[in-house]
């Protein structure tokens, strides 16, 4: 049996060799990462705290009274030591891995928890996604670079901040709630229902603030050459503060 129908060209041989190497190498990449999964019993109003170093954090809700933590770690030496507290669950990767001296590597988290939970998430870099959380508090803080995406969030206190990266919020503002969004250089986008009522203080030093359909000549004013907009939308009962050093602020109607 002939392996090749005719004399193969060097290019074909090289391609075949590389293909074989890639196929052989793929499982070893997969093996290099470690996956950890665990479930913890929880009440309906649980508080979940996570302090990561680098990597993506995704928080989703489900209808079970438990928290599921799935972590995919680049560095097999990294330690995850969740602590069950009176109020919920705390994972502190920074504290758990002080001995690794800056070599913790990416840890990608997927968290599933009850919808009425409060979540407090923090990472030094990486993306944070929060979906459908409706507890008291949703906080997402990225110390350096990374996008924050909050979809279907309906909490009375929401804080989202990063230095470099976009922030996208799609949710509702509760009357009397507090909402703060802050970025150094990225676009902050808020997508809200038309019925939303809030008092806004939006500041962008590059003067790129678009209130979109929420702009109201009579109830809003521009300050400092348009670098700040303040005013009320609807009943004005939620307090919204948005600060962007060098990026855009945009409002959209859902």
């Amino acid at each position: 049996m002939k392996l090749f129908a005719s004399n193969p060209s060097p290019v074909k041989i090289l391609s075949a060799v590389f293909s074989i190497l890639i196929v052989l190498a793929a499982p070893s990449f997969a093996l290099a990462q470690q996956k950890v999964s665990h479930r913890y019993p929880a009440g309906k109003n649980v508080r979940f705290e996570l302090k990561n170093v680098t990597g993506t954090i995704t928080v989703e809700t489900w209808d079970r009274d438990e928290i599921a933590v799935t972590a995919l770690m680049d560095n097999r030496k990294a330690t995850i030591n969740p602590r069950i507290t009176e109020g919920g669950l705390v994972i502190d990767i920074v504290g758990d891995n002080r001995g690794l001296a800056g070599n913790v590597g990416d840890i990608n988290f997927k968290i599933q928890l009850p919808a009425r939970s409060s979540v407090d998430l923090e990472t030094r870099s990486g993306q944070i996604n929060v979906h459908n959380v409706q507890g008291d508090l949703v906080r997402a803080h990225i110390w350096t670079s990374g996008d924050i995406q909050m979809l279907g969030v309906n909490a009375s206190r929401v804080f989202a901040s990063n230095v470099e990266g976009n922030i996208f919020f799609d949710g509702e503002f509760v009357a009397g709630g507090t909402y703060e969004f802050k970025s150094g250089r990225g676009t902050i986008s808020l997508q809200l229902p038309a019925s939303c009522g809030f008092h806004v203080v939006a500041t962008s030093s590059v003067k790129r603030i678009s209130m979109g359909p929420f702009w109201d000549d009579r109830r809003m004013k521009l300050l400092s050459d348009g670098r700040r907009i303040t005013g009320d939308v609807g009943d004005g009962r939620a307090s919204v503060t948005i600060t962007n050093y060098q990026g855009d602020i945009q409002f959209f109607r859902r």
């Binding site: 230095v163 470099e164 150094g184 050093y245 060098q246």
Partner: peptide
């Protein structure tokens, strides 16, 4: 360094 640069620029 890049992020400190962003803050410094502000």
């Amino acid at each position: 360094d890049r992020n400190v640069g962003v803050i410094d620029a502000a």
